[in-house]
Design a binder for these strands. Sequence first.
DNA 1: GGAAATCTACTCGGATACCGCGTGTCCGAGTTATGGTGG
DNA 2: CCACCATAACTCGGACACGCGGTATCCGAGTAGATTTCC
Lengths: 168, 168
Amino acid sequence: MSFFSSGVEYAIHSLMCMVDDSGNGREMSVREIAELHGMPYDYLGKVFTRLAKAGLVSSLEGRNGGYQLARSPAEITIRDVALAIDENKTLFDCREVRQRMAVFDSVIPVWACDTPCSVRLVMDEAQRQMYESLARHTILSLTRRMLKKVPDSYPIQISEWLTQRRSG
Amino acid sequence: MSFFSSGVEYAIHSLMCMVDDSGNGREMSVREIAELHGMPYDYLGKVFTRLAKAGLVSSLEGRNGGYQLARSPAEITIRDVALAIDENKTLFDCREVRQRMAVFDSVIPVWACDTPCSVRLVMDEAQRQMYESLARHTILSLTRRMLKKVPDSYPIQISEWLTQRRSG
DNA sequence: GGAAATCTACTCGGATACCGCGTGTCCGAGTTATGGTGG
DNA sequence: CCACCATAACTCGGACACGCGGTATCCGAGTAGATTTCC
């Protein structure tokens, strides 16, 4: 399986569609977003609960409620989103092989417990590089990049789909 | 769960202990390695099959057989090992959300199929950064770094453990 | 003493079992506009 | 006209079911050095 859960993908696409044509945030409900993207509604609800808990979006309860971006889309990095959904995930979990070496017969030396495993250090560094790469992109930059590759009618279609759904 | 399987960890530690004091490769059997590290023997066997298939080690069949490094430990990067064990793993698998947008009623436009998803591009870039970070370390450099943090008696202990096991 | 047969310690690959976790679904509770109803 | 009430459309959180893949184990087949046996 892949490292990032499907929730991360859902979250990024969701936040991207919450940016309107002028680059500002727009309020949307989970149901709207789910139907627009063909995502499972209940599952997306949990995704947004996590986004809210991480402070990326804020919720408006009650009828006509929904979510809106809590920060400018230029200040929400992809790293933020990934960490909000998949928190405390590590590329590698060290099983402390050194402490199980047969040369220590049931007496593990202190250095094997205190000093960090070299393998783990290398992996942690790689993970840091990965997250730094993700931190270089924001919801806004991603949205702008997408709009370049798409016909001009596309964002209009979405806006119309939204207004039509809200009226009917 | 973590991205890299436990097999990657086993493989790295195994290859590290196949480097002798002078930095050259030394032949060892899977059973020796498994017992030395307290790793599951059968499972480690499969790990080495993959390492051999990737050309990182070469096998010597028959009695007194085993594995030896197929290249200099300075020319085996951690990236090589990770790819040998966990091949074709991706940080992120794109579910092509764009193609499920409700604004396309059952008629998916060509651009949504041809142009790559922006989200995927960002993730792929992050994955590349991660692997490049891993490629900067080799089995030899990792071994050397480990030896610095360890009492001088440690590598001697391992060598003695080996010779004693082979004689008795 | 030398050749042949047997034994042993390996590498391989397939089949399988276990189990945690990602993914998705269902349900109930709390909140707030909206619309209807009665005085 | 206004107060009140029911309803609908939301957000939230817990519980649970399903299935896949990581981890591990078992077993049989093939290979080759070591050992024994036998002439």
